[in-house]
C-alpha cells in the first residue's frame, strides 16, 4: 500500500508540472505497480556452480542475433582481458558476459555472469522520460527502441551498469541490453537461452519467489558452502536475477554498496517538493511583487488622488 501511494503520488506531482499539456495517464501500467507481479519469473545464479564455459554468452549471442564476437566463445583468454583496469562488461555486442575472479579465500577461481538483473523497481525504467522501458508481468524489463531518444539516463541510473548504447550507429542507435529473452522465450513460458545452454545449471529459472526459496534451501542445507546472503533479494528493492556465492560478494565484483531500496527512493525528496514549488511560488512571488512595488503605487495613486480628491478614500481602500 505504502509503495503504491508513493508511486501514484510521484506521478501525480510530476504530471501536474507538465501543466501546459494534458498528460495521458495511460502510462500507469509501465511505470508503476511492480509489486503486482508476484508471478514474475526470476533466475538464481549460483557462482559455486559456474565453470566459466561461456556457453551462456554464446547462446545469448545467437538468440539475440548479436554481432559476431571478436574472439570465439571457447576462447578463455577473455577472462584476462582488462579495460581501464576493469573486467569485461556488457556492451553493444554482448548482453551478457562471464568474468573470472581469483580470490584468496578459495583455491579455485569463481566465475560470475553479468546481465540485466530485471529489477522489481528498475532504475532504468523510472528514470526514462519517454517510457521506453516496461516491466512485464513475466518479470522481464524490456525496452522499446522506437521511442528512445538516446539520452542515456538509464545507463546513468542503472546501479549495475547494464544498459549499453549502440554508439557505433549514426542512424539507428539504441540501447542494447538483456531482455530476459522476452520476445522469443519468456513470453511463451520458456526459460531464456542462456539458462537453457548452461551445462552446470548455474542458472536456475523459475518464478522469482520459487527460485528465492531454492536459493535459501541451498544455503540452509549445505552449511559452509555459501555466504548467508542472496544478492538481489533486497538490493535496490529486489531483482529478478539473484546470486549465490561462496565468498563475500564484494570479492567477486558485486557492488555491495548499492542501496537496499529502489533507486527511485533517493530521487523522491526532489519529486516531493515539485508540487510545493508549483503551488506556493506563484502566490508567494506575486505577493512579493505587490509588496515591493507598493511604494510606487502609493505615489502614483497620491498623484491621482490630488486630481480626484473626491475619490481618495475609495482608492486607498483598494490598494490595501
Amino acid at each position: 500500500m505504502k509503495k503504491l501511494n508513493r508511486r501514484s503520488f510521484i506521478k501525480g506531482g510530476l504530471a501536474t508540472t507538465a501543466a501546459a499539456m494534458v498528460v495521458k495517464e495511460k502510462t500507469s501500467a509501465a511505470s508503476g505497480d511492480f509489486d503486482n507481479y508476484p508471478e514474475g519469473m526470476g533466475v538464481i545464479v549460483d557462482l559455486t556452480r559456474c565453470v566459466g564455459c561461456r556457453s551462456c554468452e554464446a547462446a545469448c549471442n545467437k538468440e539475440q542475433d548479436l554481432p559476431e564476437p571478436a574472439v570465439p566463445f571457447d576462447d578463455f583468454s577473455v577472462f584476462d582481458h582488462m579495460h581501464h583496469g576493469e573486467k569485461r562488461r556488457t556492451d553493444e555486442t554482448a548482453y551478457t558476459v562471464v568474468n573470472r575472479y581469483d580470490t584468496p579465500e578459495i583455491d579455485h577461481p569463481l566465475f560470475r555472469k553479468i546481465q540485466c538483473n530485471h529489477c522489481n523497481e528498475p532504475a532504468c525504467l523510472t528514470s526514462c522520460f519517454v517510457n521506453a522501458y516496461t516491466k512485464t508481468p513475466e518479470g522481464a524489463v524490456i525496452y522499446n527502441a522506437k521511442v528512445c531518444v538516446g539520452c542515456r539516463t538509464c545507463m546513468v541510473a542503472c546501479p549495475f551498469y547494464i544498459p549499453t548504447f549502440k554508439y557505433s550507429s549514426a542512424f539507428t542507435p539504441r540501447i542494447m541490453k538483456c531482455i530476459f529473452c522476452y520476445d522469443t522465450r519468456l513470453k511463451n513460458g520458456q526459460p531464456p537461452a542462456c539458462v537453457e545452454a548452461c551445462p552446470q545449471e548455474a542458472l536456475t529459472f523459475g518464478r522469482r519467489k520459487d527460485v528465492l526459496k531454492i536459493g535459501k534451501q541451498r544455503i540452509r542445507e549445505t552449511p559452509g558452502k555459501y555466504v548467508d546472503h542472496i544478492y538481489g533479494e533486497h538490493e535496490v528493492g529486489g531483482t529478478a536475477w539473484m546470486y549465490l556465492s561462496s565468498v563475500p560478494f564484494d570479492k567477486v565484483g558485486f557492488d555491495t554498496h548499492v542501496p537496499k531500496e529502489p533507486i527511485i527512493n533517493s530521487v523522491k525528496e526532489f519529486l516531493a517538493m515539485v508540487p510545493m514549488v508549483l503551488t506556493i511560488w506563484p502566490g508567494l512571488f506575486v505577493g512579493f511583487h505587490l509588496l515591493a512595488t507598493r511604494k510606487d503605487k502609493v505615489k502614483e495613486m497620491e498623484k491621482e488622488a490630488e486630481l480626484k480628491k473626491a475619490k481618495e478614500n475609495d482608492e486607498k481602500e483598494e490598494q490595501v
Binding site: R54, S55, A58, N61, A70, V71, P72, D74
Partner: peptide
Amino acid sequence: MTEAGEKRFNTGEYAPKGGAVSESH
C-alpha cells in the same frame, strides 16, 4: 564439438575472420 557447436561458439570453421576486430569500445 559438433558442427552446430562450432557455429554456436563461433569457433573452428566458424571462428571470426581476421580477428582484428578487437573490443567494440
